[in-house]
Amino acid sequence: MSVPLVCLVTCGESLSELIALEALKELGDSVGLCPLTAITRGVPEVIGRIKNAKHIILLDSCSLRCAKKTADELGI
């Protein structure tokens, strides 16, 4: 998969992920889903996409803010 202009980072199996998946149907290849679980597991393909994307949108599903904290820890 090529590097999308925008990566949507969401919590897995959450309402935010379901919304992002529906949005991707309309937005095409310029936007890609970068699952938080893949980021925390260090999946190279996803880490590369998120580090090279022009924009990152974090969609935290609750007040724990796991997506933001993880991105901060990785320097994204």
Results as ranks from 00 to 15, higher is better:
10 T>R: 03
28 G>C: 08
16 S>M: 06
11 C>F: 01
55 H>D: 12
60 D>S: 11
13 E>D: 13
51 K>G: 05
40 T>V: 15
38 A>F: 10
30 S>M: 10
8 L>T: 00
12 G>L: 06
46 V>K: 07
32 G>I: 02
16 S>W: 00
31 V>R: 09
37 T>N: 10
54 K>W: 01
42 G>N: 09
45 E>N: 12
34 C>V: 04
20 A>K: 02
28 G>F: 02
38 A>W: 04
24 L>S: 09
56 I>P: 04
10 T>Q: 05
38 A>H: 11
25 K>N: 09
26 E>S: 07
28 G>N: 06
39 I>K: 03
35 P>M: 04
46 V>P: 06
41 R>S: 15
17 E>W: 03
33 L>H: 15
24 L>Y: 06
40 T>L: 06
33 L>Y: 07
48 G>A: 12
42 G>H: 06
43 V>K: 09
16 S>C: 13
18 L>H: 07
34 C>G: 05
8 L>E: 01
30 S>V: 13
46 V>C: 11
22 E>S: 12
38 A>L: 12
14 S>G: 13
51 K>T: 13
29 D>V: 06
55 H>T: 11
13 E>C: 14
58 L>W: 00
31 V>A: 10
24 L>D: 07
12 G>P: 12
45 E>G: 14
13 E>Q: 11
20 A>E: 01
42 G>C: 10
41 R>T: 11
51 K>H: 07
42 G>A: 10
57 I>A: 13
39 I>N: 03
57 I>Y: 00
13 E>A: 15
51 K>C: 06
12 G>W: 02
44 P>F: 01
13 E>K: 11
58 L>K: 00
25 K>Q: 13
17 E>K: 02
36 L>K: 05
22 E>T: 07
21 L>N: 13
60 D>G: 10
